[in-house]
Design a protein around this nucleic acid. Structure first.
Lengths: 358, 358
DNA sequence: CTGTTAGCGCCTTCAT
DNA sequence: ATGAAGGCGCTAACAG
């Protein structure tokens, strides 16, 4: 059996309460006693039982981090930053462990993990990535979050819009991304280059991220006096998942529907790579024949050829901020909402269309 | 306060022991009683306290996953696979949570996290990535692992060689990568194309992964009757960290030392991207003037331009296997060691050298 | 400053 | 099949 507090106490010739006090350093203990206890701890290689401590003190060393998939750099970068921030033992309340949960974008998995984290009485939960819309899922999540919040779990949303109005009473800090603004600026960039027939490869239809980026794209079209709705615009929009092969397929479909396309905007960088591959496989050059743009500015984007024009989201900083918020180490932003700016990164994958008029 | 077992028991008109038995389903309970309890649980929205359960039953729902950095796709892919495997609630003992720990490759952080996980009485620990050699670190890790193993924590090494001989008594399953063989085949490929002056961008000098890949490279040189040691070979080897900028700098240095280089092998794909960038910035074409190769076959490698010749490691499968092993869901391989094959992926970034003699 | 005393919420023999 | 009771290892009042 593992050595317990009582063992240490016996060896040091003190009560277990004293050992506890030495270990937690939150109560005055005589120097000599402290030393004796410390020695006993070392001699016995004692390691506290976190579960017993958590139970007795009603605290937890765990922080949940919900992601679609840590293998996706978008989420990996956020998760990494959160982890780094919460594990900083030198900070107050620091030294928490990150429980990373891959939801795969499934609403059920999201709820299941929230229950599991409630079970562990997690100190905090960071939910990353766009929210799934519709079918009462938002309400279901809100209900779970309400329970968590009530039991003292700090909740932070990162890369997802705030909870819907009926749930605004729940104390949740939100680090949102300006997806709409970024998407608008990206399409404005293409329009200003002279592109008029722009294909759009959107993400899954039921995600807030997908919707906001698409809205930004269309807002830019509208601002330039172009149709931003109707069958003609729908025809130039294809939905798919947020992965490379989806981008490949979508690009082929777009080129089939509209061979005179001069530019394609992808839902994110990963999709954009698939688009690039398809465009090239069809014999077009980038950006000579067709410009391609992505979103997120993941690390590999600069190494794509041509280097990808995209919209940078400071994922690392956002994750770090979410980490600080969930630790209560940073004051929540006004109204609990901080919107992270996005930045247009113009690189080599976009250029004027052949015979462009800009 | 949160609702407890006792609350449920009271509402169902049974003892808390009965509720516990219903919840755990490991003991006969009358059907009618079961239903009544189940209803009470639902009515009260009861969620078990994992910490109390863990304390009483001496079990844990946590599995630690040590990685250098989850933001690095190499580790992200492994971590993702481990997480997916251990969280499968339908499997025996399933439904564990993954505690992801970024060690940043620091020996101290590695030990600290192992202590933290021991504190949580983790059910298992998966340590990923190459080991740090020297300075007694291996022994220190082994000591910690011995303690963990003794207290029932399952231990799995993934992507790292088995523990050193003195520690072989510790029950540890190892999923190792055939770094040496892969590196050898990669360099053989270059040699067979006709390359003779090959630069090598190695990783940090104190990592097993670095060493094995370098050994494989040199073994190939030796097998072709080329010098595989000595100042001339050292001159063509530059060490750096496993990141892009390190590859960039190293490539410049190699080209400075030996302008007649016809190929550069990088420690991994990320480094290779940096090498490619440097080579191009110096005005050379790939593979026309200089061939470049990486290692790992990370997802972005196929989208690099030219597509990267590299050595594929089935990271996903390896991670999944590690996950199953740490859950005790799969029998350990003979002698506790399974070596994962690596596969040479010849793509467009390598070709015959100009005026090659192959 | 230190020891004593209660639990924290649950599981698990032991009875019944 | 169910209940009663003790204890998992630790912390947090409360005394002294």
């Amino acid at each position: 059996m593992a050595v317990t507090l009582a063992d240490v106490a016996a060896r040091a010739g003190v009560s277990s309460a004293t050992v506890s006090r030495v270990l937690n350093g939150n109560y005055p203990v005589a120097g000599s006693t402290r030393e004796r206890v410390q020695r006993a701890v070392d001699d016995l290689d004692y390691v506290v039982n976190g579960q017993a401590r958590a139970l007795a003190a009603a605290t937890s060393d765990l922080v949940g981090v919900l992601v679609n998939d840590v293998a996706d750099p978008f989420f990996g970068l956020i998760a990494s930053a959160v982890q780094a921030e919460i594990s900083d033992g030198s900070a107050p309340g620091g030294g928490k462990l990150a429980v990373v949960c891959n939801t795969g974008g499934s609403p059920e998995a999201e709820l299941t993990y929230l229950t599991l984290l409630e079970r562990q009485r997690a100190a905090g939960v960071v939910i990353t990535g766009g929210a799934i819309e519709g079918a009462g899922h938002g309400a279901a999540v809100a209900a779970r979050l309400a329970r968590l919040a009530e039991s003292g779990t700090r909740i932070v949303l990162c890369g997802r819009p705030p909870l819907d109005p009926p749930a605004t009473a729940i104390p949740v800090a939100t680090v949102a991304f300006d997806n709409l603004g970024g998407a608008r600026r990206l399409t404005e960039h293409l329009l200003s280059l002279g592109h008029r027939r722009i294909g759009y490869v959107a993400g899954p239809a039921d995600r807030t991220t997908t919707r906001h980026r698409l809205e930004g794209h269309r807002a830019a079209l509208a601002a330039h006096g172009l149709p931003s709705g109707g069958p003609d615009v729908e025809r130039l929009t294809v939905h798919g998942s947020y992965d490379r092969s989806s981008g490949y397929d979508a690009a082929l479909e777009l080129l089939r529907r509209e061979p005179s396309l001069t530019a394609i905007v992808a839902a994110n960088d990963t999709v954009a790579l698939g688009v690039c591959a398809a465009v090239r496989d069809r014999g077009f050059s980038i950006p000579g024949d067709i410009s391609v743009a992505g979103f997120d500015d993941l690390p590999f984007s600069v190494d794509a050829t041509p280097a990808l024009t995209t919209v940078r989201i400071p994922l690392q900083e956002a994750g770090a901020r979410a980490g600080r918020l969930v630790m209560g180490r940073q004051a929540p932003p006004p109204c609990g909402l901080a919107t992270i700016r996005t930045e247009l990164m113009v690189r080599a994958s976009t250029a004027r269309p052949r015979g462009g008029t800009a």
